[in-house]
Design a protein around this nucleic acid. Sequence first.
DNA 1: CACACCCTACTTTTT
DNA 2: GTAGGGTGTG
Length: 747
Amino acid sequence: MADLSTTLEALNPAQRAAVLHATGPLLVLAGAGSGKTRVVTLRMARLIRDGVEPGHILALTFTNKAAAEMRARCLALVDGGETGGTPVVSTFHAFGARFLRAHAARLGRTEAFTLFDDDDQVALLKRAFVSLGLGERASEARGVREVIDASKNAGRTPSPTELPPEVLAAGGARIAEVYETLLARANAFDFGDLILRPAELLDADPALAARVRSRYPWVLVDEFQDTNAAQMAWLRALAPPETCPNLCVVGDDDQSIYGWRGADVDNILGFARHWPGATIVRLEQNYRSTGHILDAANAVVAHNRARLGKSLFTVDGPGEALEVRDFPSPREEARWIATRISALCRDDGLAPSDVAVLLRTNALSLDLEEALRASRIPAVMLRGRSFYERAEVRDALAWLRLVVNPDDDVAFRRAVGAPPRGVGETTLDRLAAAASSAGCSLSALSAGRGLPAVKGPAAEGLRDFLSRLEAARLELSAGATPERVALHLLEPLHQRLRGEATRRAGGEDARARLENVERLVAALHAFRRERPGATLGDWLESVRLISDADDLETAGGAVSILTVHAAKGLEFPVCFVVGLEEGSFPHRRGEGTDGDVEEERRLFYVAMTRARRRLVLTFCRERRTFAEVRRAPPSRFLAELPSACLAPHVEPVRSEPPRARFGRTLPRPDDALFRDETYDDHGGGVEPGFRPGASVWHGELGQGRIVALGRGANAATATVEFPSVGRRAIVLRFLSLYEDSGGHWED
DNA sequence: CACACCCTACTTTTT
DNA sequence: GTAGGGTGTG
């Protein structure tokens, strides 16, 4: 703590203002790379130094990673601190879960409630459709899930009018209502409930809200631009505007990229309106990127209208200019990037782990992974949550969930078939019908009045299933460790997977499945080593609330390939942003409204500001979406880049014909060409110079001569005679005119 | 209950 | 174009 004041002196004026701000609402507009975490943790440490009880500070984040970092850095600052107690640093969802455990009874749950993820929700919705007599309606269930989620994000219970028309047409108007009933019967909450239900409780019970307020007079919110309406309702209860609360929110309106998930950028745009008298501090000095990168990012995001306005600067130099490259196809793009990364590693002393390739969508990774593999460049696609989504892992988790919460019918249905034990759809339907009319869960039915109408092998299997679970519960209450109980409980599943793994037919997949289940138990063990005394329920909750992305960053030694969403908050010395075409980035889905395009632009801004020293932007003249190949105009965002930041355009490296002259000039983003008909698809228009007899160059097939011209289904084509492969029909835009030195190539 | 085949659907995804 | 799910059959 002694060096806190020295640290404060090292801050820039804006940072210091944020750290020293005394009381009342504060909005810290923290630009990318502006030292936000430093400011936030120093502010907490400063409050503690100035006498605020550490336990009176509540800091809310969106990811466990952010929470852990904030906690660790704050503790390091106040280390040796006189008073005991630490600030409460938690994710919104973990805090909500804790709150609901304390008040479960008021919502018809017990403290053993299960947390349902998206897949559980869909599974439960299928049951809800069945209980309405409509069959499972698997495809509709997903749409309904989205409606339920969206309305909970918006801070309310879903109304029938919002349901997809096909659901209403099928007579499913009550689906959301039934879903809630079944959710309560399963003693479960979904993710949306973790925010919505506490907000409702706080609204309905002013005394409760007052208690929470006095417990946490200092509230801090990270990534405020990503809050939704339900979270805003929380904050209004925790820090009512009329009380001039000590609410400090930190965020960047230009990095609001979760609108499609319910985040409302208006929360941050209107903060000073919602909390009158708020102080606003802008952190605009950037400590991450070079000048050209920042200038370019500023210029792009300046095209947005819905923003508070902010301009990043650095005291360092301009650095390398941005490179913009275009390619005939994604494969060329990917190969060039592989070549470029090799060169950077060879000539500039970079390690592959210094490089990231950023994508708008996961689907764009295929060509890249392949090209990098072919070039023997270590690379990993960083995608979240994959481990806990595997079937065998979900099977194992279902068993464990059921131990903690017997009423979890979604887990019941899953676990009872893993491995199969003769309890099939028919048996389950029969049980479910009885349970439904008794208004109880499957387990409660089985335990309560025996197993009605189940005979033969099914009855045998069911008895075995239930007794295994009961044995596990007894072991636990007798003091056995959760990991030991898990080993016993998962033995049948484990044995089954072992059998598959040793059989020849099973192969590698089966072995991986086996290892995944073992990894899961190991994870439980590790969790309990870190937190002695933690219960099985604690671990299950953490598994639900911790995403793979939290400990994903470890790309150790490899090039990272990741979506821009996944890259938020990360930084790399070198970034490639690929697929910058209209339809891909901005994504086609965002074409509808201005707001959507602005969010796409913010996404591009996030992508650009990940780069520290070098930024390369690439696009293709055409892009394959599903089965069809579409001609793709360059992204409008490229045209927003100031040419002063751009390296002189260089022709693509690959596929250049010897002594080539291209039929079309490759556009520079700020060229007039960029916006004109160059990329319009006329369908059959024959482009000048392409005529029978002309010498042409094809990127892969090499030199050839046009025999005839025609039009294909979507584009003009040419029949070309290649010395290597004979006659081929080639779409015209794949060809470049090839000027040979007078003679005929046949010679 | 396992396997095969067919049909459909398909952005992003902090928790 | 492909993967995953749902249906139908052995």
